[in-house]
Design a protein around this nucleic acid. Structure first.
Lengths: 114, 114
DNA sequence: TTAGTATATAACAATTTGCTTATATATACA
DNA sequence: TGTATATATAAGCAAATTGTTATATACTAA
């Protein structure tokens, strides 16, 4: 049994969470960078509540955590979460998504907002 | 970039497929054994159409293939499929599900049926 | 204190999902 | 050939999902 072994029910639950393009991209980005809600709104071009709801789902299983910094709330990966090792094995197979953050920076939106 | 790199849209699509307890278990079992529909019906205790519909989804993306053997149709993993390497990285983290087949054998249902 | 910004939550509509039952098709065998 | 078995497909339904708009909350700064 691998160190990352996870029971099948929980694995299915995590895969379902990751099986959404928006959330999968979020988690991939968060694995390398903290981000706030407004950045994701800009990246995914959907409403702010939609982003908050995706983040809520990720937070509910403990995969991400939030931290207020003044006016903003920053999300980050909770690398201590029991499901993180399993998740990481998935993330490691995905192409880097950091170019999305770089595009924000070039437009000045990363600095302005967060 | 890993050899198994997969574009993010496709990854999300595959993860969504695997993010169902029934399908995830099916694929895990099929990775080691060919199975026919009636075995899955027995294992999962759901209707035969429900099993067929799950298998259909897996077949539609090419992850499994079917082969008629007389009265029965056997499903197996399509290890040549473009999404198999990605899928395998997920499967390798899951606990073995072969005990479910052994339970069938003990009840005589594996031999009788297939 | 008041206005503006960032975020969360509630309520709702449209879509998707996963099951069921009914039925069609294909094979096996008496 | 006629009947039984294995599977697929169609149709219908309830629950879940994902987006939206409206609104509440919390912080910042004038």
């Amino acid at each position: 049994m691998l160190k990352t072994a996870i029971d099948l029910d929980r694995a299915a639950m995590i895969l379902k969470l990751l099986g959404d393009k928006t959330r999968l991209t979020m988690v991939k980005i968060l694995d390398n960078h903290d981000c706030c809600v407004c950045e994701f709104v800009e990246i995914f071009k959907v409403s702010q509540p939609s982003i908050s709801q995706h983040l809520r789902k990720l937070k509910d299983v403990g995969l991400v955590k939030e931290e207020r910094r003044g006016q903003w709330i920053f999300y980050s990966i909770n690398k201590n979460n029991e499901h993180y090792p399993f998740t990481l094995q998935v993330l490691n197979q995905l192409p880097d998504q950091d170019y999305k953050l770089r595009e924000l920076e070039e437009k000045g939106n990363r600095i302005t907002c967060c």
